[in-house]
Amino acid sequence: MSEPLLRLEGVTRDFPGFRLDRVSFTLEPGYVMGLVGPNGAGKTTTIKLILGLLRMREGTITVFGMDSRKDSLAIKRQVGYLGERVALPESVTSRWVASFLSRCFPDWDDSRFEGYLNRFGVPRDKPVRALSKGNRTKLALAAALAHRPRLVILDEPTSGLDPLIRHEVIESLRDVVAGEDRSVLFSTHIVSDLEAIADFVTVINDGRVVASEPRDRLTERWRRLTFRVEDATGRPDARLLDVRRQGATVTAVTGEYGVDLLQTLRQVATGPVEAAAMGLEEVFRYLVGRNRPNGVDDR
C-alpha cells in the first residue's frame, strides 16, 4: 500500500470528564473512512485535532506526510472541511463564497464549484439565511470540494437533517466521492449513512478506538450464530457474546467469526452451525457495548 494520507498515532487529549485516549488509525489514498461513534465519543475532538483547532497532549498526526502542527497551512490547502454546523456568514450568496474561497485556495476552481451547485440544485443568488438546511449543507459541501482537496473531512454533515434531505445529501456525497482519487473521513453517529459510501470504518467509543478496519472485514467477522447442543449449560466458547438458549438451541453473536471458531463449535454442536450476516448498525451496537451486558473488550 502507498503512504497513508492521514495517520494518527497515540493521539491523546484530556478535558474535564473526558479523555481522548491514544487514538490511532490510518486512511489510505482513495478511500472513504467512516468515523463512527455515539454522541460524545470523541469524533469531533479527533477531527478538530486533525485540523489544528485543538492541541493534543500526546501523539502525532500526519497528513500527506506532513506534521499537522508544523505544516498546518500547507495541509489545509489540500483539505476540504464540512462541519455539522454550516459555518458560512448568513448574508452571503454562493457567489460571495466562491469569491472569498478563491482567494484562500490556490487551486480553487470556479467551474467545478458551479458544477457542484448545478448537480446539487443549490440556488445561486439566495443568501445563506434564505436557504434550507439541506441546501446550506450542499452549498458548504460544494465549497469544500471545489479546490480539488486530496482529503475531505466531513463532521456529522447529515446531523439535524430530515431523512429525505439526509438521503439527498448522502447521494450527493456518493456521487462526488465515487470514481475520484480523493480520500474522505466521514464522521457520523448515523451508521446507516456509512453503508452507502464507507470503505473503512473506525469505531470510537468513550474516547477510544474500538475497531478500525475495512467495512467488509468488519461485517465479515461479526456474525450471529445459531446451533443446537446436547449440553445446554455453560458457555460453548469464550468468543461468543450475548449467548441465549431456548431448549437445545443456542443463539450468540461473535466478533471473531472464522474457520477456527467454526471448527470449535462443530465439536460441541449436534447439527450445522448457521452464521447469519449482521448489519453495520448492529455490529456498531455491539462494538460500543450497547447490546452486551459485559461491555466490550478493547482491541
Binding site: L51, G52, L53, L73, A74, K76, R77, V79, Y81, G83, R85, A87, L88, P89, E90, L101, C104, F105
Partner: peptide
C-alpha cells in the same frame, strides 16, 4: 455577534489562512 452566530472562527480556522 455575527462571528459567533455564524461560527466564523471555525470557518476561518479551517481555511489555509494564518
Amino acid at each position: 455577534y455575527e462571528d459567533d452566530k455564524a461560527d466564523t472562527w471555525t470557518f476561518l480556522r479551517t481555511l489555509p489562512v494564518p
